[in-house]
Write a protein that binds this DNA or RNA. Structure first.
Lengths: 112, 112
DNA sequence: TTACGTTATATCCATGCAAATATAGCGAAT
DNA sequence: ATTCGCTATATTTGCATGGATATAACGTAA
């Protein structure tokens, strides 16, 4: 009924998106499923889109965020690096803090 | 070269977007030009898009944000209400505060 | 009463983006 | 050797979004 404030934050590295909400979702799904194709299915996005997202993350990050293996037992897979874990944790924390901050700012609008 | 954090915030009213960056730009241009069609031209967007944006703002706001007049001297025009002025000022301030807040949070990522 | 410049709205069309589809390449296991 | 399930890509197809265009409605001023 009343006003709500929403936000979307993301992190860029030399003008490319490194991390955003969608990319974090994808990384978490990879962590859970152990493969990019299963992660894509669980998020109801096409494998192509998932691959493009992951590719852009790994290309713009300082260190690799996932290790992808082709072939081998089970056909391959993808798993998060330690750096990848740290990134998504930090992003989640910042995002949560941002929501709290904005909710408090919203009063300025409600008072009008 | 290093990571940057960016954000986009917006305000919703019963699941409709009330105010965002684009809508604030449009309202400021209306304030400057005195008409919706001139504002659209100055922002290089079609009149149709500008009208849709303004219409959705006025439909989801508690009080009118602009007064639009059809016909009359000069064919008509649009001008901000006092409530409209207050809204864009509050939005700008919140946005600026948000940037400052996020820049400070970014350190958590840089330290990884 | 006619002309004007605007708001307001419908319709058509092109363009781009995303999904679907297809296919190649890989390496371990059998 | 062959199969399997995945990563990695190119190509086509479909759909939605937005732009262009057209036009109605309006009220003041001449």
């Amino acid at each position: 009924m009343s006003y709500k404030i929403k936000s979307r934050i993301w992190i860029e590295s030399n003008n490319n998106v490194l991390l955003g909400e969608g990319r974090v979702h994808l990384l978490k799904a990879i962590q859970k499923t152990g493969s990019l194709s299963k992660a894509a299915k669980s998020l109801n996005i096409s494998y192509k889109k998932a691959w493009q997202l992951l590719d852009s993350v790994n290309k713009s990050a300082k260190k690799p965020v996932t290790i992808n293996s082709i072939g081998g037992k089970g056909g391959g897979g993808a798993e998060l690096t330690e750096y990848g874990h740290s990134l998504i944790n930090a992003f989640d924390e910042i995002n949560k803090n941002c929501w709290a901050f904005l909710d408090q700012q919203l009063d300025k609008i409600k008072q009008l």
